[in-house]
Every structure is written in C-alpha cells, then in structure tokens.
Design a protein around this nucleic acid. Structure first.
Length: 487
RNA sequence: GGCCCCGUCGUCUAGCGGCCUAGGACUCUGGCUUCUCAAGCCAGCUACGAGGGUUCGAAUCCCUUCGGGGCUACCA
C-alpha cells in the first residue's frame, strides 16, 4: 500500500537501559530515510512500562541521539503538532480508544488471573496446541461476571482477534501473512488501567500520521496486532503506515545484541573515544550499502544515498575491528583544532593535564605526531603522558632493555652528543644522534634509537623520537638520559 | 513444539539469468618503507550451507532439506 502522503518516520525506543548499537542502527536508518525523502523525523519515547523505563534513561537517550547528530524534527524538547511525544503523557488518549474498542465490541474485559492464564498455557503446551489466550472471557455469562466482580477481580482489556489472516507488505521482506490461529487475543490495557505497547504504538503511529515504520525485526510478528488496532480505530487502508523490518545487529557470538552490556551501549563507545561520525558510518554499513564500493560515508552522504530497497534482509554481526578501523580513518581526517577539542576531555579526565593554557599549547603541538597512530581518542592520554608527568620514571618492564652494557654506552654517547646542541629542534637532534650513534658507534638505527626512546619516553613504543624530544624540551630530555644512565 | 524471518570469503558486503575462473572493505599472513609503533604501498589466503529441479546457461528462479534467529507476556 504505497502512499503519497508526506513522509513521516519515527524512532520510538523504549529506554529500559542505555541505547545500544542495535537501537542506534535503527535510529540512523529512520533518520536517514526521513532526510533522504525530505520527510519528518519523529522521536517518540515508548515508556508505557514505567516499571522498567526511567527518566535517567530517557535523558540519556536524547543525549545520545544528539551526540550522534541525528536531530529530530518532532519529539521531546522540540515539540511538534502531534505531541506529547512521551507515551506516559498520552494516557488519556489510549484510555479513550480502549473504551471505544470496548463499546464497539472489538475488545472485551478479561478477568482471568495471571496464574490461571499461566496454568492454561502450560496445559496447551503439554497438549502440543498453539499457546495463546483461549478466548474464555469473550462471552461471559451474567453469573460468571457477577462471580468475578464479587471476588474483586480487576479486568484487563483484551482485543478480539477475528478469524482469518493478516497480510501486509514489508518493504524489506515482501508479502508476509499471519494466520489468526497463531495471533491470539491480546491485552491492550493492564488491570491497573495502564496501556500496553501494542495499543500505544498503533494509536500513536496513526495519530502522529506516521507513514513509515522502520523498526527491528523482533517486531515483525507483532505487526498483525498493530494492524488489528488500526482496523478497530477505523483507519482507512491507504492510511496504514508502510512497514520495513530491519535485520538484527548481532554480537560476535551470533546471539542477539542485548541491553545492559557495556560493549553494546553507545555511551560506552563514546567514553572509549569513538567518534560519532565513525559510529554512524560503521552502523550504516551494517545491513545497508551505498551500492558501490565506497565505504567512507559521512552522515550527509548516508542521508543522500539511503533507500529501504538497499537494506539487507539478513542479520549482521557487529565487528569491533572494523569500527576501530573506520574510527582511525575518521580521526586522521580531523583538522587540528577539531582533533584538539575532541581530545582535551580525554586528557583532563585521565588527569594527564589539568587544562592550563600552556598545557593545551603543548598538546596542540604534539597532536600531529600521534594523529595517525591512534584508532580512538582514549589512546591519546597514554601517548602524551610522557610530556606532562612531573615525576618521570621508565616503565619497570622496559628497564632491562637499557641496563646492559651496550645500551648504557649508547645512552652516555647520546647524552654527550646532545648536551652541547645549539638549537633544540628535531632536525638538529636527529643529526646529532645519527652522527654520534650511527656513524660514531656504527650502530643500526633501530638499536641506536631504541634505548634513547625508552630513556626519554619511558617505553619502547612512542611517537617519533626526535619530535618527541623537541616537544619535551632540552632540560627534561637530558635529565631523563642522565637518569637512565645512573639506573 | 507452533508461527514467522533469514542463509555469498572469518566478518560487513557487491551481485538482482550470461560481464562471476564471484568484486570491494575489515581481519589475518607475507613483503616493501622505516628511529619504535602506526600510517602508507604491494601480494596472498578464504565464500555462493546441502540436494534436487527450471534453463542453452544459475550465486541469481522454484522445491526440499539442513542451519541460524525472532515471536509465542497484564515487556517492547
């Protein structure tokens, strides 16, 4: 049922934890589809389950989406014509519709207790019958009703699922049909009067004039229920949204990515120094491709190129290695000021610098020599630490590498060669050391500079040596060489 | 168990009946470059789950089978 209404796409998470990779991939596709079509991107919070959704998680969700640059046109904090956009603020709307369904006979009160339902489900399972509500309360006698009422039972509102089947066209999977024998009557309103997802999602999509529902594959089999609510609402067929069920993003172990796991939470990636543009780029490639061989795509390009037709139908495994590779590419593409601004929080948080102007100046000078050496921003503090520590010492594990006789000789010679140097530039340092160690002692470069590197930076892995010494300064460099000789 | 979805290199993917002795990217291996580590460059390994059809011709269409996943809540 393709429609020509102005495109309105919603991302509607239920923040029962930090948004994770799978959520964000869905958000990205929703956003991209809206932007690609010039439509409206709606952000809605599905918090009908207030037992599990918290205000902190909601706030974090807004923050995460904004950090990623997935700005919404309607939703929390920006408003819109069809608000409110928190389902917990739309309770009266759902109650009205539920009452209407009751009045129309589409829904009915069900007095079965949780225990009774569970017992009957067990029996169904044992009898190898499709489990699901058996329709007991569809038509209660006066006596039964009076009995339940006298027991003080509070009913749920249950939707009546007529005989037949539901067929709809999924934009990614094609035509899908569900026989109603396998779609039992479902609950719309809890006994305490609060609505369930199945009711709220359908009501909101209709009332917010959503034209395209791009969501996770796990909701595929709940679609007939959603369509049933549309019917009860009296929505015309051409006003149904189009559905597109996105394939899962799975973990390394081939299991569905789950919440409450540090490795899947987007907040974790932010803290680990991943760039939002890298996350978007990588996630865009999970289940979708631009159609050519390009893999380096900006958010704008994703929006420009994204079509549902190019979304895969099969699930994708999340691969940290590739994310990291893309993140490294994006870091290398940063201009100096941008790189500096993004790096500073990591340096101060880790305590490597306090944030003074002179420190920042030095960081700015040092960033170019480490930019192509890191894959995420969290690596920066460890790499630049040697420039800022007040009490310098060589990593104990590295000490054996410079304590043998030959190394000591090299260090002495290096100190000797540098002590009288006129200008302290990396060119001059290199020239002096090459002359003293390579030519003077006939050493291979890697042997000659290895010890000096450890003595000066504290580790056998470091940024380029001569530039590092220039940035460290003459006094500290020489002092560290002396220290290494004594030890 | 039932219903539904899915199945190309280790991973993400290109492919929509002939251009495929299956292309790209990440990973991995080897090499070059080199003051370490990176980055960069070059080369290499490895895939159409299986079996039947349809067709002159199938990764591409159909069937079966096997495998994976989802749903089966007063969660979403």
């Amino acid at each position: 049922m393709p429609n020509n209404r102005p495109v309105r796409v919603r991302f509607a998470p239920s923040p029962t934890g930090d948004l994770h990779v799978g959520n964000i991939r869905t958000a990205l596709f929703d956003w991209a589809y809206a932007r690609h079509t010039g439509g409206t991107f709606i952000f809605r919070i599905e918090d009908t389950d207030r037992e599990r959704v918290t205000d902190e998680y909601i706030a974090a969700a807004l923050d995460t989406l904004r950090w990623l640059g997935l700005t919404w046109d309607e939703g929390p904090e920006v408003g819109g014509l069809y608000g409110p956009y928190l389902q917990s603020q739309r309770l009266d709307i759902y109650a009205e519709w539920a009452q209407k369904f009751l009045d129309q006979g589409d829904a009915y009160y069900c007095y079965c207790s949780a225990e009774e339902l569970e017992a009957r489900r067990e029996a169904q399972r044992a009898a190898n019958v499709a489990p699901g509500y058996d329709g007991k309360c569809r038509s209660l006698s006066e006596a039964e009703l009076a009995d339940f009422l006298s027991q003080g039972r509070k009913p749920v509102v249950r939707m009546r699922m007529p005989d037949g089947e539901t067929t709809f066209t999924d934009l990614i999977r094609g035509e899908v049909t569900f026989d109603h024998n396998f779609v039992p009557d479902f609950v719309l309103v809890r006994a305490d009067g609060s609505p369930l997802y199945t009711l709220a999602v359908a009501v909101d999509d209709v009332m917010m004039k959503v034209t395209h529902v791009l969501r996770g594959e796990d909701l595929l089999s709940s679609t007939p229920r959603q369509i049933r609510v549309y019917q009860a609402m009296g929505v015309a067929l051409e006003d149904y949204p189009d559905f597109a069920h996105l394939p899962f993003v799975m973990g390394q172990d081939n299991a569905k990515l789950s919440k409450r796991n540090g490795e899947v939470s987007i907040a974790w990636y932010r803290d680990a120094g991943y760039l939002p543009e890298a996350i978007c780029n990588y996630l865009a490639l999970l289940g979708w491709s631009p159609g050519d061989d390009r893999e380096d795509v900006s958010r704008e390009e994703i929006a420009q190129l994204f079509t549902v037709e190019r979304v895969h139908s099969s699930p994708a495994r999340f691969d940290m290695k590739k994310l990291e590779a893309i993140n490294g590419d994006k870091i290398r593409a940063l201009d100096l000021d941008d790189f500096l601004n993004r790096t500073l929080p990591f340096l101060t948080r880790s305590g490597v610098i306090a944030g003074t102007d002179s420190e920042i100046e030095l960081v700015k000078l040092a960033l170019p020599i480490i930019q192509e050496r890191i894959a995420n921003l969290a690596e920066v503090p460890a790499m630049l630490k040697f420039l800022f520590v007040s009490e310098f010492s060589v990593d104990p594990e590295e000490l054996p590498r410079i304590s043998d006789e030959q190394s000591q000789a090299v260090l002495k010679s290096a100190h000797q060669a540098l002590i009288g140097l006129n200008e302290w530039t990396h060119e001059a340092i290199e020239a002096a050391l090459r002359s003293a160690l390579i030519e003077g002692l006939s050493l291979k470069p890697r042997i000659a500079f290895g010890g000096v590197r450890i003595a000066v930076t504290g580790s056998h892995i470091s940024p380029p040596l001569f530039e590092s010494m220039e940035l460290l300064g003459r006094d500290k460099s020489l002092a560290r060489l002396e220290l290494a000789v004594q030890s």
